[in-house]
């Protein structure tokens, strides 16, 4: 049977409320800048961006499931495709490609050639350790955790540091069995 899940997120993106991307990009940029001033340590900024992303991901997954019409993924491979083709499209209006699966099928890379977070951004030399887009990895980690997948998400390539694309490595650490906290007859 053919999967019912949409192959791309175009239709969903067209149907959600959208805003001017400049406002989003500049807000994120101004926030990162203020965090660098206030927290001083680049590592601490990375950590806070990841935490913010995680909190956003935990909430965003609900909206994703409610609006995207995606049903339960049969395996981690399908999960990867759904994130790349539907998830990124629905929220950021871009698509990612899924590459570099490991032999066990538990880790893959998401490659972004286009990324609205970084329009107008250049990093000064003092920010070499900064993962400017760390909020994205946090979002993925938070969202996946809500659907029972513990993951580790790390940056492999970053155009702000001179690479030719953005590459996120997503590694499945543990599939948490679902537990129902309620009784059947309630």
């Amino acid at each position: 049977m053919a999967p019912l899940a949409p192959k791309t997120g175009d239709a969903v993106f067209a149907s959600v409320d959208r805003v001017n991307a400049e406002l989003f990009t500049l807000t994120y940029g101004a926030m990162v800048r203020q965090l660098l001033t206030d927290l001083e340590e680049v590592d601490e900024v990375n950590k806070q961006l990841d935490q913010m992303g995680y909190n956003i991901g935990v909430r965003l997954i609900d909206e994703f499931l409610a609006k995207s019409n995606v049903s339960r993924c049969v395996d981690f491979k399908e999960t990867a495709d759904v994130i790349a083709k539907v998830g990124f499209k629905m929220f950021l209006g871009i698509t990612a490609s899924v590459t570099s699966w490991d032999a066990e099928g538990t880790s893959f890379s998401l490659v972004l050639e286009d990324n609205p977070l970084v329009d107008f951004v250049e990093l000064p030399d003092t920010c070499q350790g900064l993962h400017y887009c760390n909020i994205l990895s946090g979002v993925l980690r938070g969202a996946l955790e809500m659907v029972s997948m513990k993951t580790e998400v790390t940056w492999v390539r970053d155009m702000l540091h001179g690479d030719d694309a953005y590459e996120l490595r997503v590694k499945l650490l543990k599939q948490v069995p679902e537990e129902y906290p309620y009784k059947d007859d309630e």
């Binding site: 409320d17 989003f24 913010m52 956003i56």
Partner: peptide
């Protein structure tokens, strides 16, 4: 019309920014 993103993206960033501070 220029480039757009879902409104939830900006909402999420603002909520987390305010909450972090």
């Amino acid at each position: 019309m220029g480039r757009e993103v879902a409104e939830s993206c900006i909402d999420g960033v603002i909520i987390e920014m305010v909450s972090a501070y």
